[in-house]
Amino acid sequence: MRIAVVGAGAIGGCLAALLDAAGHDVVVVARSSAAVLRAEGIRLEGAFGAHNARPDVVDALASPPDVAILATKTIDSAAALAPSAAALADVPVLAMQNGLDAHGRVAGILGHRRVAAALGTWAANALEPGVVRITAAGETVVGGPEGERFAALLAAALPTVRLARSIEGAQWAKLCVNAANAVPAAVGWSMQACAADPGLLRVTAAAMHEAARAALASGVALEAVGAVTPETLAILATSAEAAQVVPVAMAAGFGDVPNLGSTQQSIRKGQRTEIDDLAGAIVVASTRLGLAAPVNAALVDLVHEVERTGAFVARDRVAALA
């Protein structure tokens, strides 16, 4: 198949390399990293194996591919899709993005509903263009319109792919997982180091607790995402203290290679983060549901401070949030 991958960061680079390894004709739509990718290709390392891919690299699609995968941050969706909008007018698209209703937002941008959603529990790091290291394996969950098509496509390239009964429920579960992203991004530590620090662990658990309360109150049929099951979400929602077991288990699953989380990776690359669609989405949803999410609200402010100043926040300021 001719597959377009829009976005060549950690997720897009990984998918482009794996689909290339599976024998597909891959074209990558990239902006800032285009020159490096044309010269060096994409090197994949780590838990999904090693592969050097040399996909076509373009600024915009000149003709429709068979399918496309959008793997940018949510805040970059419109800008990334605009140059290729005509070529994607009736093409099935997979939004491999964080946040709630990612596929709905992409469908609004493209003007058609042939948009599926996917999320992964694997940890990918890409701090330099064209080099992607998978530091922890995991599953990929796919759903929504065109979900069966993309689940079949990815199943031939990724080790564990599952078609979700409710992609919205899976997105809520992943949002609860991603609630662990903000503390490392604020202090500049790895997720493992934050989980090992009692004060930062309390804050991380409190953020996840707020997220899980909102998830349960949303009324959506929650799905398991990796090791995070509806039962895990119930533990997270019980109390901030009880919730601490979850980020500790997550950190153990990452192994010895420092996992920075996607938000901190964006900061270290000098890019805008999608914190407003992660911790910020928890705040918005909690408010709509009549709940409070003060820890997530404070973390949003701190991450924006880091973006604005370029300096990570002192550990004690973050630990004081819970």
Rank of each mutant, 00 (worst) to 15 (best):
R149L: 15
R43H: 14
A251Q: 02
Q271V: 05
K269R: 15
A50L: 13
R43C: 05
R31F: 01
D277R: 11
V131Y: 14
V29D: 05
A157V: 01
V318N: 04
L153S: 08
G219H: 02
A170V: 07
D277M: 11
A53Q: 09
V300N: 05
A30V: 06
T263F: 05
D276V: 11
A53C: 09
V29F: 02
L18M: 13
A212L: 11
A170R: 10
A60S: 14
A4Y: 01
V183T: 04
A217Q: 06
V115R: 04
L44F: 05
R2K: 15
F150H: 02
H24N: 03
E274D: 08
G147H: 08
E231W: 08
G199Y: 11
A249F: 12
L216N: 06
A319H: 12
A173Y: 10
V183A: 09
G255L: 00
A195T: 02
G219M: 07
A102C: 05
L37Q: 10
V246A: 04
A82L: 12
L291H: 11
W122P: 02
T287F: 12
G12T: 00
A34T: 00
A85E: 05
A227K: 12
A82Y: 00
P230C: 02
A68F: 10
R114Y: 06
D256S: 15
A116K: 07
G9A: 03
V303K: 11
G9I: 00
A89P: 03
V161D: 09
R38T: 05
G144C: 01
A151P: 10
H51T: 09
A155N: 08
P129A: 00
E305I: 01
I42A: 04
C14E: 10
S218D: 05
A285C: 13
Q171H: 04
D56Q: 15
S33V: 13
I75C: 12
V303R: 08
A285Y: 07
A221G: 08
H304G: 02
A212T: 11
A322Y: 14
A242N: 05
V26R: 08
V306D: 04
A196W: 03
A137S: 15
A195P: 09
G104T: 12
Q264W: 01
P184Q: 01
M96R: 03
R308L: 12
A195Y: 03
V318M: 01
G280F: 02
V306C: 11
A185E: 10
A249D: 12
V142E: 03
A16C: 07
A193I: 00
N52K: 14
K73L: 11
S190W: 08
G147T: 09
E148V: 14
A311W: 06
P64V: 11
G219D: 07
L61Y: 09
S266N: 13
S239F: 02
V131A: 13
S266K: 07
A95E: 10
T72A: 02
V187W: 03
A152H: 13
I75M: 14
G108Q: 02
A205V: 03
A293Y: 08
G147S: 12
A39G: 09
S166K: 09
L88A: 07
L236T: 13
L110C: 05
G143M: 05
L94T: 04
S32D: 14
A292H: 11
A215K: 07
A252T: 12
A157R: 06
S32W: 04
N52F: 10
I3Q: 02
R202W: 03
V183S: 01
V6L: 14
A80C: 01
